[in-house]
Every structure is written in structure tokens, then in C-alpha cells.
Simulated assay, not measured.
Amino acid sequence: MATASGPPGQTGTGEETDVGQADDGAGPTVAVFDGSTRAALHRRWLPDTVRVVCARSVGEAREIVDRTTAVALVRHELSEPKRSAIADLLDGRTNRARTVLTTSGHEPVSDPVVDEDACLCEPIDSESLRQVVGRQLAMASYGRLLAEYYECTTRLSSREVELSADERDDDERYRRLESRRSDLAAGIKTLQKRLSAEEVRSVLFDIAPPEYERVAAERKPATGGKYRPDGCRSCGRDWNVNPDGSPAGYRRLGAFVWECTDCGTLHDRSDPANQRIARRR
């Protein structure tokens, strides 16, 4: 999207700025943050159609993170200050980049400073890497198209208010916005066919989370995570933030696993068909 000023890819607010115009035509980028030789290996494993950049330090990360960054591979074994700095860069400079946490461990892990969307643990091979990164790229593209569609629709509605029915047919800007909205809708439908219902819900949650997630006055437990269920399916305990700021009835045990502190039921969100996996007691 074009803008007269500001960081690359940032949407402008001027009247003459059209939704959907890219600054340099660059496609989505996969950024690999790993201080070991694995970064080069991951780079070779990803298809040539994907632009991949690597950073071994926070300084290099500052050089490569921008609005084109769609997926970030962050090594869990990096020091916490480095992971925290990378997370801040992704939050501040990207357009809803999705994060894949990689680890040398053999079990999925959660991270106290990186809000991961997926986790890759050893053994990591080219097939699993391509599959996970490909899904996250599709979700990132889907989210960006949705946000752009909403913006385009808003501008088109504003134009409809400004113009009479007769004037709209002759208004070039109105026709461009209408055409762009149709193109975006077609792209959204195409990507939606590649995503599961759970993945679509996840993207929608990122764009417009429920109201309780947006209330800054309430203390949200640090072990939440964007895929946390709303509550326990066994005992019915509500896991949303309590108004008094007290603990909300769950513990996060892994990248996609939560335990109910009332009844001990474990919930696994990595598999939509297996969201309740066991009772601990």
C-alpha cells in the first residue's frame, strides 16, 4: 500500500492514496532468526519462490525486519533479551507477521516473550519446515487481505455517501475502489479454501479479538496465548480475564496445551479434533 510518507508498506491517510498499492512490489518475506548454522539450512529448504532473509544478531534483525516480513522463524535457544528484542521489532515494524518458534528440543515449547503461532521441534526436516511455513504464509496473506478489504470497503462506503448515484458511474476513484474490493474478495475466497476453520478463526481473532481481550484495565495472565480456549469443556470454568484481575482458572503447559486448574483437564489446540485430551486427576 502506498503512502506519501512513513515506513514502507504503511497505509497512508491521504485522500489520493489507493488501497492495495505496494511501495516496491516486494512479496512476503520469511525472516529467520537463528545464531547457528541451521539458519542457512532452513533458507535452502524453503522454495525459491519465497524470499528468505536471515539474522544472527539483534543488529542484523533491525536491518531486515520491515512491512514485507510475513513469517518469522525465531530460535527458542536464543537468549531471552534477543528474543524479546526480536518480538518488539516484529510487533512494531510488521503487518501482523506470524511467528514460528523453532527449538532443538523434541517436544513443543512455549515462550515467555515470543507469542508463537506454531512450534517446530526436532527432528526438523525440509518437508515439515515447508509445510509449517507455507501454512503460516497463507494465514498471514489471508489476514492482510482481510484488513485491506475492510479498509477498501470503508473508503468505498465513504465515497458512496459523498456522491449521488449518477455521479458514481463517472467517478474514477469510486470505480477503482469498487474494482479493488472485488479483486480482494476473490483473493480472500481463494486463500480461505486452503485454510481450516480453526486457522480462519485464528486470523479473525488477530484482526478483531473479543472485547475482553481488548480491555487494558483487566490483568490478563501472562500464560494466555492467542489460541487459548475460552474455558474448560469439562467443568465449564470460564477462562476469560476475571474483572478483579485474579487468575482465570488455567495454566499453559505447552505451545498449544492448557490445563484447567479446577478439574485438571488438558486441552490441546494443535488438533481441532482433539481439543480435550486427558484428565490429570
Rank of each mutant, 00 (worst) to 15 (best):
P108F: 13
P81C: 14
A97W: 05
D66E: 13
V65A: 07
V71G: 02
C54L: 09
N95L: 14
D111M: 03
R44A: 12
I124G: 08
V52A: 04
L78I: 00
S36L: 12
S84D: 04
R98Q: 15
S36P: 14
R98K: 14
I64R: 06
D117A: 14
A85I: 02
A39F: 09
V32T: 04
A70E: 10
A40Q: 13
I64E: 02
T29S: 01
D115Q: 11
I124T: 10
T37N: 05
S110E: 10
R93T: 06
H42P: 00
P123E: 08
T103W: 06
R96N: 14
R93A: 11
A85M: 01
F33C: 04
D117M: 04
A40M: 07
E60I: 03
V50I: 15
I64T: 06
S110H: 13
S126D: 13
S57E: 00
E127D: 12
E80M: 14
D88S: 13
P123A: 12
E77N: 05
V109M: 11
A85E: 12
E63W: 03
G35E: 15
R56S: 15
P81Q: 10
P81A: 11
D66N: 15
E60H: 12
A61F: 01
A31Y: 01
E107S: 06
V65P: 06
G105A: 15
V100C: 06
D66Q: 13
L90S: 09
V100R: 05
H76F: 04
E63I: 00
D91V: 08
D111F: 02
T49V: 15
V65T: 10
R51V: 12
L78F: 01
R96D: 14
T103C: 04
D125Y: 03
V74P: 07
A39G: 07
G27K: 05
D91M: 06
T68Q: 09
A87H: 00
D125I: 09
E60L: 06
V100Q: 05
L41F: 04
S79G: 08
H106N: 09
D66V: 11
E107R: 12
R62T: 06
R98P: 07
L120Y: 01
V32I: 15
P81E: 09
V30L: 08
W45S: 14
C54P: 00
E116S: 13
L89N: 02
T68L: 07
S126N: 05
S110M: 12
A40E: 13
L101P: 01
T102C: 10
V50N: 05
A39C: 10
D48C: 02
R56G: 09
I64G: 06
A85N: 05
T103K: 02
A55F: 08
S36R: 09
T69K: 03
E122W: 14
R43I: 02
S79D: 12
A97G: 04
A70S: 15
P47S: 08
D115T: 11
T94R: 05
R51F: 01
R62Q: 11
A85V: 03
V114M: 07
A55Y: 06
T102H: 00
R67P: 00
L120A: 02
R98M: 11
A87Q: 10
E63V: 02
A85G: 07
S84R: 13
